[in-house]
């Protein structure tokens, strides 16, 4: 039973992993720092590990989708990330793809099982 549960959890986290970048990009239309992203995603019911998110931000920046700057006028210095032009385009493309996939998945899941066999 525990093995099954573990398998299930692995599958779920694999499923989530794919949508992670899209959700992060979506929030980054507004400038965000690391922790504000975590709580922002949580507000939408999306859980993300801090240890995954922080390195992901740097990677997205390195890939040229984000720009970042230090804000030092606050309680503690924070690095704010925001979509740049390429990031915005990428978000649009990814969102379209997401919609398309969502529709397809809905149909696939709701399709009667007899049709799947054909």
């Amino acid at each position: 039973m525990t093995d099954q549960k573990l398998l299930f959890e692995n599958l779920v986290s694999e499923l989530r992993r794919g949508s992670l970048i899209l959700s992060v990009l979506a929030l980054l239309r507004q400038p965000q720092y690391g922790y504000s992203l975590i709580s922002g995603l949580e507000a939408f019911g999306i859980a993300i590990e801090a240890g995954t998110l922080y390195p992901l931000l740097r990677r997205l920046e390195k890939q040229g989708l984000l720009s970042s700057e230090w804000a030092i006028d606050q309680v503690r210095p924070r690095r704010y990330y925001v979509l740049n032009e390429l990031g915005k385009q990428t978000l649009t493309h990814l969102s379209d793809e997401w919609q398309r996939m969502n529709k397809a998945m809905d149909q696939l899941i709701q399709a009667p099982s007899s049709e799947q066999g054909g």
């Binding site: 690391g34 922790y35 504000s36 709580s39 503690r76």
Partner: peptide
């Protein structure tokens, strides 16, 4: 750079 950022993030998480 990562040290500075990580420290801030940990403090954010602690404050929360």
């Amino acid at each position: 750079d990562i040290e500075k950022e990580l420290r801030g993030l940990i403090e954010d998480m602690l404050a929360a």
